[in-house]
Computed example of a mutant assay.
Amino acid sequence: MPQPFQLAVCAEMLWLDKPMEWRAARLTEMGFGVGLWNWPAWDMVKLERVGANYTIMNGYLQGRLADDLGADMLLKSARETVQIGKRLGVDRLNLHGTGLGDGGIPLWQHDVVTGDMWLKARDTLCRICDLAEEQDVVFTLENLNLLDHPGCPFGSTKDVLALVSSVNHPRLRINLDLYHTQIGEGDLIRWCENCLPWIGEIQVADNPGRCQPGTGEINYAAVARALNDSEYGGPVSLEAFAAGDPEAALEAFRAAFTI
């Protein structure tokens, strides 16, 4: 059956008892790209040797979008992380509205985002685009649900779309995480349609449980058909835990996104 999407998998969430280079190698053997989170936790030399297609990794270690100090921290951290990403040939470097601490809790929480914060966030993303042009890389901005990430500024799908479309630069794309969209807004196919011109990657997990497609309420086969009908042919990445055997979970993911 034809496979219209570039399938990848977050290696951090599967085979938790295995070394990261083993996980990257096994995903490569199975025909998947490899996603990473924070690079300091892993041996870069061993990951380089795997020869995997590393599709995405966190593009920063500290910083935030909407204040002067946080923006300067973000740019400095992003510049350092770009060099690590280049060692691995990473396709995209991922950002959030603010850094995340233990359990994904935002380090800088705001229930109300002011107009000045919006303007500063847009300015920071324009600076990120300048860095991306200079270094010939692409950054993505990811949406997060506010139940798991309370007070995260610019976390909603709506806010991420507003910022990225406002900057409207080819070096800045949306990392559309449909697990987070389902919890925060629902209406997944329409959000895919709205975000389509700016999508750099789509991430998926079922809800509840954050496991592979078929374990929860989301009809990912219908989402896949809608994406194919809209002529989206970019990366779709499983960012999920395995309910049961990891390789069975991966095949369920592949089946859901095979048209």
Rank of each mutant, 00 (worst) to 15 (best):
V112G: 05
A11E: 03
M44V: 11
E48V: 00
E185P: 05
D136R: 08
L69T: 11
N94E: 12
D72N: 01
D229F: 00
W15F: 10
E247Y: 07
P40F: 10
D91E: 14
A66V: 02
M117G: 05
P153R: 09
V160G: 02
I218K: 12
Y232L: 05
L196S: 02
Q62S: 14
L61D: 03
G214H: 07
G70C: 04
V112S: 05
A121K: 13
W22F: 14
N228L: 10
Y179A: 11
R127V: 09
T140L: 04
C129M: 12
N94Y: 03
G63M: 09
F241L: 12
D177I: 08
G151D: 07
D111C: 00
G209M: 06
N194S: 11
H96S: 12
F154C: 02
A121N: 00
P153L: 08
G35D: 00
T81N: 13
K76R: 15
H110L: 14
A162W: 00
F154Y: 07
L196Y: 03
V82L: 07
A205F: 07
F32K: 09
I218A: 02
D17A: 12
K18R: 15
F139R: 10
G85M: 10
P170G: 06
D72F: 07
R64T: 08
I174Q: 08
A162T: 14
D177F: 04
D111I: 01
W37E: 07
V9D: 08
G31F: 00
M30A: 11
V204E: 08
L146Y: 02
L163R: 00
F139E: 06
V138F: 02
G70K: 01
R254S: 01
T98N: 14
G33R: 03
G209E: 08
